[in-house]
Amino acid sequence: MRWAVRIGSLAAVLVLWQLLTASDTRAWLRFDQLPTVVEVVERFAVQIGAAEFYHDLGASLGRIMAGFLLAAVLGVALGVVIARSRWLGDLLRPPLEVVRPIPAIALVPIAILLFPTDEQGIVFITFVAAFFPILVSTRHAVRALPTIWEDAVRTMGASTPQVLFRVVLPGTLPGVFGGLSVGMGVAWICVISAEMISGQFGVGYRTWQAYTIVDYPGVIVGMVTIGALGYLTSAAVELLGRRVTRWLPREALR
């Protein structure tokens, strides 16, 4: 029954969209400018058969993966270091704090100047976007770690690297995954925007391209594709996060 309501609600929106656009309604909002649902679906069917579509998908996914993985590794490593070492914290925090408030997308001009290829610039923007949420949540998670776990392994004779890998990393994973989820979200925002500004291919580039050549059904197809990619990658992070934090007490409530 609840499923019927959910599906019905979605269907109603699509029907409304079709009605408003097919009848060229103008009621302050200019629905006559937008493509109809049918046009979009037809366009989608064509795109799915085209090699270019998959090339764009692969390009955007590749950029996300490269930037996000780099951000995950560096964000977690630096987050732990900053939280655990006063000296390295003092050394690294000031420059990071100065760069942090700048939205990654505002770095596009710098990225274009700095990197030899557009490709590297886009990956860099994606990296910066995902890096800060991961860094900050890792740092907080390390700070909030109960001291008893570290005390326990210390009385087993653990060395500092052993404390890091046996206690700090596993213990902070729940907080780290919070940062990874947020990071994945902003990484998509930035990769798409960067592609719109400086790409030669990719889903973001293709969507903007469709707009400039007045291919409005193509724009909607691009938007839906971006939404689907964002949903799938976020779900993947979420799923992985649940798997590695199964020990959390909240799971007991399920």
């Binding site: 008893i148 776990w149 005390d151 326990a152 392994v153 210390r154 009385t155 087993m156 004779g157 046996r166 206690v167 596993p170 213990g171 994973l173 934090t245 020990w247 959390l248 007490p249």
Partner: peptide
Amino acid sequence: RGSSRDRALVFQDDGLLPWR
């Protein structure tokens, strides 16, 4: 000076690692 594997402590509160 500092902790050692030669002096083990059974903690009053939970000293187990919850993910293990």
